[in-house]
Nucleic acid binder design. Structure first.
Length: 945
RNA sequence: GCCGAAGUGGUGGAAUUGGUAGACACGCUGGACUCAAAAUCCAGUGCCUUCAAAAGCGUGCGGGUUCGAUUCCCGCCUUCGGUACCA
């Protein structure tokens, strides 16, 4: 019989499940290997062909490592809290728990279809109380610790209180937002509320004012994703940034370790660079400027203290605490107008803008401590409150944005750095000779910076300091579908953590998921849950990254009810050896997980400082978006569609692009893609609002009922996201049904390098399908198994061992697309010589088992193998079979290949050179004198003329 | 704007350390088999000039280093990801 995946795949799927083949024990006698996928958010759309790309790759690695003798942990779970389920609930009334559960069921069946070797007994769901009990528990630990810079680790807040009692905070070395010092006596005099506020400034989980996107019209806080061009995506309503008291995590305490430990990781350099830039360490000076007529000082941070004589104005963020105080009555209107304007801009817009900045003068002046000059203090949208100190000294001559701001508001510009000695240097390079700067004149910039550090410290107006761009993470969401905070507030508003016996604090049931009128979380509607008269619960919930920051630890001991994971389990599995997931998580998720892990490490709860030893980012599989052009300025009820070629001469803005279901498009994805009359008919049936539309093409115009002969409406094809909204989703289930999971898996790998994004093209899968049948037919003739037990020839061994070598090398360097090519080459070669030798084929079956688990299991059984092929030892190359007795050299003249030369293996270069010069047929290129002959042993020959 | 990545035939891609550009597939063309089609098999297929032989050009664009550059360096262009509340 011919290979039939519909029979064979379900058979083994059931067999594996019933025998528990993929169950993993914490068997300490074997070396461990932990392979992890970034767990998915179970969206309502189900998996599309892009999702499994990384899962297939990790499955191959997991199976390969198993065959190499490791005890492999390869788990899967769901990142199940999130915004989409909540939005779905608001629009349909379906409870997020219900829709999430349905989505998970669907994901599970889709995943099962693909033959992964996950140990499902270890599944985690972030929305499950038995899981988020420990998310809450970790949050409480963060709440109860502060970061001590003397020991360089997290320490209990209780220990801090003891120190406060004994000696105040003068000797405390900590990462803190506390700026005022106090003695033990002063500490004792403070009341409970004041003490709680001071402790907040030290805690790793703490409360502070954060800003949210508030949309008055929708009465809700919007995610950045829901804001487009400064207005809400739904409805186009104005959005403003509104302050709110929220929980934050003090990730900045770990900035230095997050940065320096990057060196220990086997991650792509590009990714490390992104994290480095995100942390953004810079050395500079913290400086305090006196303010004319005020008792207070303005704190700024600058990396360029050497340019202080060029500081012609100061800029503070419009949200800065001092704005109100500094604004003079005369400037009030202007400042308020500016603040209102800035409120309506997102942070992203404010950072992106380098040309058109906005600001206003407060009316106040800072004093330059070096020449006592008055420097006007402005507010400006390009300074962000949470960056550094939220205040800068502006040096327009040496900073592009300061320069543009100064030009716009006609502020003076003083050149302080002469860069003429360094012609290639840009403004960002710290190079040049200082001018117009009193005692700094004539110094080189780096030298001047050093001198300024010393001066500033000597004068007591500031300190050399390290600053990070990294900001503390906002940890509050005004939403329902997330982990409730295990926090309650007493009648004075002082927060305290719940005890372990009160966990999990379960998310209460609710039937109205809309936020309240004043923008509070939906949970605040449940007054009976919120308050019992003596205390009030926190009603915000945690963000998506809470549950995903530690899930990889839970897999190690998923059912544990006493701890997040037992010490034995954590000591055995330690860290993730191989982590694969999307590049879109390069900073967010990976940074937060590293932070939490380091915190747990400080507490002695995990044995490694880093959670993910090796990491690979997989690319996205994109779809082709097909759309047709709709004329915008038609009469209200008469639609006109234009063929793509007709739109080229008209302004693009006149057309709206209407996505078309790709099933209707002929020559889908090619430049010739179009709707034929049949496609147009399908389109009109699918979108009845266009059933009377007129279609214009090169062959004429007409409605769907009366189209000209050979009518074609050319469509626009663009590579983009595979998504429901573009009607271009390809479901892996369909592929598995038609071609089988083995074929689908191999095709996904064959598409290209795992790290690269590439468009999906169903057509190409035929090639892999043919290959699988060819492979099967090596030992099946007219449907009957036929195997030879003869001893293989040297040629057969060579074909097999070439494949073993190449495939093993490729897996080790994670080049999975080329492994598939190598299997194809191997099978093509074996087919060419009609090899059906048991010894060869059985080894090949084991070699291919990680890639195509079903067909190899079947063949293993048919070849009389014991047990499962997935527990066999992976083939090892024997180099003896690969030795060549001759070498073919390409013969190049001036780097261009002109001929070949075959010589015995190991011939010395000098002799090869002699042979080459004696070759016939090279004369016509050798009419000029030969300058040099280069022989690279085993590689090539180049003659230079 | 900033940070990161990618760009090679009609298409997906290969070339592992600077050494034969286009492996392996898809598609296309021709042929075999067939009443016919599908499936399968065989041959060809970077572009251009050409009956052919043969030559020239060719890895986003413009420069550079080198005997030799898809690979290294400098400057651009385009697309994609992230940009702190999508996941």
């Amino acid at each position: 019989m011919d290979y039939n995946h519909r029979e064979i795949e379900p058979k083994w799927r059931e067999q594996w499940a019933s025998s528990g083949l993929y169950k993993v024990t914490n068997d300490v006698s074997k070396p461990k290997y932990y392979v992890l996928d970034m767990f998915p958010y179970p969206s309502g759309a189900g998996l599309h062909v892009g999702h499994p790309l990384g899962y297939i790759a990790s499955d191959i690695v997991a199976r390969y490592k198993t065959q190499k003798g490791f005890n492999v942990l390869h788990p899967m779970g769901y990142d199940a809290f999130g915004l989409p389920a909540e939005q779905y609930a608001i629009s349909t009334g379906v409870h997020p728990a219900v829709s999430t559960n349905e989505n998970i069921q669907r994901y599970r069946s889709q995943l099962d279809n693909l033959g992964f070797n996950y140990d499902w007994s270890r599944e985690v769901r972030t929305c499950d109380p038995s899981y988020y009990k420990w998310t809450q528990w970790i949050f409480i630990q963060l709440f109860e610790h502060y970061y001590d810079t003397e020991f360089d680790k997290a320490v209990l807040v209780e220990a801090l209180i003891e120190k406060f009692n004994a000696e105040g905070n003068v000797n405390i070395q900590a990462v803190t937002s506390q700026t005022e010092f106090f003695t033990a006596d002063q500490w004792h005099e403070k009341d409970e509320v004041e003490k709680a506020e001071i402790l907040m400034n030290y805690r790793l989980a703490y409360r502070k004012i954060g800003y949210v996107n508030w949309c008055e019209a929708l009465g809700t806080v919007l995610a950045n994703d829901e804001v487009k061009d400064g207005v809400s995506e739904r409805g186009g309503h104005p959005v403003e940034r509104r302050p709110m008291m929220q929980w934050s995590l003090r990730i900045t305490a770990y900035a230095e370790r997050l940065l320096s430990n990057l060196d220990t990781l086997d991650w792509p350099d590009a990714l490390k660079a992104m994290q480095q830039n995100w942390i953004g360490r810079s050395e500079g000076a913290q400086m305090f400027f006196d303010i004319d007529g005020h008792d207070i000082q303005l704190e700024i941070f600058t990396t360029r203290p050497d340019t202080i004589f060029g500081a012609t104005y100061m800029v503070i963020a419009p949200e800065h605490d001092l704005v109100e105080l500094l604004t003079t009555p005369g400037q009030k209107t202007e400042i308020e107008a500016c603040i209102t304007y800035v409120k309506n801009k997102s942070e992203r817009e404010r950072m992106a803008e380098v040309k058109e900045m906005n600001g206003a003068f407060t009316g106040a002046y800072a004093i330059n401590p070096f020449n006592q000059e008055r420097i006007p203090i402005w507010i400006g949208d390009y300074v962000l409150k949470d960056y550094g100190t939220g205040a800068i000294m502006a040096v327009p001559s040496d900073d592009e944005r300061d320069m543009n701001f100064a030009k716009k508001y006609q502020l003076p510009i003083i050149d302080v750095v002469d860069k003429s000695k360094y012609p290639g240097a840009t403004l960002h390079d710290k190079l040049g000779i200082i001018i117009n700067s009193d005692f700094l004149n004539g110094m080189e910039v780096p030298e001047a910076i050093q001198l300024m550090f010393e001066k500033i410290e000597a004068m007591g107006i500031g300190k050399k300091r390290v600053n990070y761009k990294l900001r503390d993470a906002n940890f509050s969401r005004q939403r329902y579908w997330g982990e409730p905070f295990p926090i309650k507030y007493d009648e004075k508003g002082i927060p305290s953590a719940l005890g372990l016996d009160e966990l999990p604090l379960e998310l209460p049931d609710l039937d109205d998921f809309k936020p309240t009128a004043d923008g509070k979380s939906p949970l605040s509607r449940l007054t009976s849950w919120v308050s019992d008269g003596t205390f009030e619960r926190e009603t915000d919930t945690m963000p998506g990254f809470a549950g995903s920051s530690w899930y990889f630890l839970r897999y190690m001991d998923a059912g544990n009810e006493e701890e997040f994971a037992s010490a034995q389990a954590v000591d055995y599995w330690k860290e993730v050896d191989f982590y694969i997931g999307g590049a879109e998580h390069a900073v967010g998720h990976l940074m937060y997980s590293r932070f939490w892990h380091k915190f747990l490490y400080d507490k002695g709860l995990v044995p490694t400082e880093e959670p993910f030893k090796k990491l690979v980012n997989q690319g996205m599989i994109q779809g082709v978006i097909e759309s047709i052009y709709l004329l915008k300025s038609g009469e209200a009820n008469q639609h006109h569609f234009y063929s793509e070629e007709l739109t080229e001469s008209m302004p693009e803005a006149e057309f709206a692009k209407i996505p078309v279901h790709v099933d209707y498009v002929a020559k889908y994805g090619s430049p010739d893609s179009h709707l034929n009359p049949q496609g147009i008919a399908s389109f009109c049936e699918w979108r009845p609002e266009y059933k009377d539309a007129i279609f214009h093409g090169s062959a004429g115009s007409g409605t769907v009922a009366q189209l000209p002969q050979d009518f074609k409406l050319m469509t626009k094809s663009e590579v983009g996201k595979m998504s429901k909204r573009y009607f271009n989703v390809v479901n892996p289930d369909d592929m598995v049904d038609r071609y089988g999971a083995d074929c689908f898996r191999m095709y996904e790998m064959f598409l290209g390098p795992i790290e690269q994004s590439k468009p999906w093209d169903t057509k190409g899968i035929d090639g892999v399908s043919k290959f699988i049948r060819k492979f099967w037919n090596l030992i099946h003739f007219e449907g009957v198994l036929k195997i030879s037990d003869e001893k293989p020839t040297a040629e057969e061994y060579k074909i097999l061992h070439t494949a073993i070598k190449k495939v093993s090398d490729d897996i080790e360097r994670f080049s999975l697309n080329t492994t598939i090519s190598n299997f194809m080459v191997c099978v093509n070669e074996l087919k060419r010589i009609n090899c059906n030798k048991r010894e060869i084929i059985h080894e090949l079956v084991k070699l291919m088992a990680p890639f195509a688990p079903f067909i190899t299991e079947e063949l293993h059984a048919r070849l009389g193998g014991e047990g499962s092929v997935h527990k066999t030892q992976y083939p090892v190359v024997n180099e003896a079979y690969l030795v060549e007795d001759s070498v073919v050299y390409p013969v190049c003249i001036n780097g261009k290949k002109r001929d070949e030369l075959t010589v015995p293996n190991g011939m010395p270069p000098a002799e090869v050179e002699k042979l080459v010069l004696g070759m016939d047929g090279l004369e016509k290129w050798l009419d000029k004198p030969i300058k040099k002959v280069i022989v690279v042993p085993g590689r090539m020959i180049n003659i230079v003329v």
